[in-house]
Design a protein around this nucleic acid. Structure first.
Lengths: 347, 347
DNA sequence: GCGCACTATGACAACGTTGTCCCCGAACGG
DNA sequence: CCGTTCGGGGACAACGTTGTCATAGTGCGC
């Protein structure tokens, strides 16, 4: 068993990190030969290579990628991913998918959470640019992305995920928010609901606004009209969702169905309704784990985090491979997964 | 509205990235003065600084961190995090916590998923070392970590999370696996259960093995004895969990209660039992979202992903701050959250 | 024995930044 | 008027690596 005390502990001599120079000296060759061996370049005598490898092993040499990247100037082998919150299952799914694609292309992923703060998004993105990431994947928090123009001009491809950029034309991967909520309303209307409420996120968030639009279109198309009194937008914690639902149910003409605008709101709603006697029909945007095991199982508009991450990463790598076509906007389909909560008639 | 076509698109001149040299030339100063301005060093005349800043802005200059890190030699401002799967909610919680602490210390986090593959864990860790991360947080996939010795000796602190390293003494943050399953068994026994089964992950995974040990200790202590026939270990997908449960229930002396070894297994078990008429009592290791909304709500041994990430990151940064004390082993407590599924008497 | 091709290796500069040292000119005291 | 101090700024080397080019040695055909 090898034992080793950590950094700085008594009794362990802290050693300077070996460089190619040290390896070269030990192996009795020039530094360039070490470089050749490390990079698997042809034209090194097997015996020499062996000596070099032995020296590398003995010294625990590991090549300094900062120096390499500096010298080579081109790829740093990294891509940056700026999202809202790595802790959110939706985004961690996105992260995983991006990582997967990046791995196939031999790239590392650096992530950062913006927490919906445009300043933080900018800070992270530019930090990544300073690190000379090969490309940038961004879930926009704000609407202004002019700060990226010099970076894009310098050749760093940027792909926006989940929401479009405000003032820059670039590749974007979205999900069909409008179609999703419109489908939710149509679905509920087909079961006879005419008072369908919508609980959405703050309307300055692109997806929230789109989903509201889809809801409105759905209402109009179903011939049940759009009524502002049935819409509650805003940042939603559990308590405010509870209150909103109470308000909708206690109204003179109460809502018999609810469409929720994202998975957090859906979960809050399910929790709020768990005890109550009379339950409105429910369709939520975003699928979530265990939705099928709740009672009743929750009907959702599902879209795939992996697909989103994969599509964005594919787009990014296509750009890195030299694709110079005009910016693309990809809209991923959603699908309604009927599980029970949305397939009930008004009571 | 600023429009800009992406990388390489027709009509956009791709521009070489500006360096301090370019800025210096434009501002009519020396490169060193630019460096001073960029680094907020004192001793630059305000008027000069203004000229430099204007040039920086005009050229879209962004300093190259590779060059900076190379020259300065010390901190790269990054920490590496190697875990099993960023997509797993438990680890994404860990990631978020680590990111949070790192942010406070002005560091970026680079993550990678090992998928329980020791080779991949090694590859990722060493890749991060090549990037000269300031420190490394690792959820071990394998048992051999000797490959880290040169890195640790060179001053890169390493903290192991969730599982200990196999053959290296280093800081480690664990959760109380043994105490957790022991408590689960005691809890079930207190409701009169004497045939308590255990469904765990493959026993070569440290946590799975520990939890099995806790289960066994719990059985012995409760005076109900340890019976191998009640234990099913192994990698578990939904189908195999279903079969294992059927086997346990159809036995001559069927199990009346089940302890599941991690959140994936718990969820599979809940799904498998969803339809069945007679349900064993259930306590799962790991809490999961919506556990309280299932029917019955699932009793779990909860431990906090955030706490784990935070403790590990705190330890790492303490080392970076020069803490040279002997390696520590931190064991985080778990707590039993009674929700219903574990509080039923044998039928 | 001579030129030639070819293999194996090395010398050197350069990547973009920052630390060290040095210099110029203005202000100031005697 | 001279020496000293100090604020502002520049020259230069160095970080660790790799691309370019050069060179020594070897084998081969004639």
């Amino acid at each position: 068993m090898t034992t080793l005390s950590p950094n700085g502990a008594a009794g362990v001599r802290k050693v300077r990190r070996a460089t190619m120079n040290d390896v070269a000296r030990l192996a009795g060759v020039s530094i360039k030969t070490v470089s050749r061996v490390v990079n698997d370049e042809a034209g090194v005598h097997p015996a020499t290579a062996e000596r070099v490898l032995a020296a590398i092993d003995q010294l625990g040499f590991r090549r300094n990628l900062s120096a390499r990247n500096l010298r080579r100037g081109s790829s740093t082998g990294t891509v940056g991913l700026v999202l809202e919150d790595v802790g959110n299952p939706f985004y961690s799914g996105v992260t995983r998918a991006v990582e997967e694609i990046a791995r196939l292309r031999g790239r590392q992923v650096i992530t950062g959470s913006s927490d919906e703060d445009p300043a933080r998004e900018r800070e992270l993105s530019l930090e990544f640019c300073s690190r000379r990431v090969d490309g940038l994947l961004i879930v926009p928090a704000g609407l202004q992305h002019g700060y990226l123009v010099p970076e894009m001009r310098a050749g760093t491809p940027v792909v926006f995920l989940d929401r479009p950029a405000g003032d820059v034309v670039a590749d974007t991967v979205l999900v069909d928010n409008i179609g999703g909520t419109a489908a939710a309303v149509a679905h509920l209307a087909s079961f006879g609901h005419r008072r369908i409420a919508f609980l959405g996120d703050a309307p300055d968030i692109f997806t929230a606004n789109e989903r509201l639009r889809g809801y409105r279109e759905g209402c109009v198309r179903a011939g049940i009209g759009y009524h502002e009194s049935l819409v509650v937008m805003g940042p939603h914690d559990e308590e405010s969702v509870r209150k909103a639902l109470q308000g909708l149910q206690n109204a003179a003409d109460p809502a018999t169905a609810v469409v929720t605008g994202n998975n957090r709101i859906t979960v809050h709603a399910v929790r709020a309704l768990a005890g109550s006697a009379v339950r409105p029909a429910l369709v939520g945007f975003d699928d979530f784990e265990l939705a099928d095991l709740l009672s009743p199982p929750v009907t959702v508009i599902a879209h795939d985090a992996s697909a989103l991450g994969k599509a964005a990463a594919d787009l990014l790598f296509a750009r890195l491979d030299g694709d110079g076509s005009p910016p693309r906007r990809v809209v991923l389909p959603v699908r309604l997964v009927a599980r029970g909560s949305g397939e009930v008639r008004p009571s």
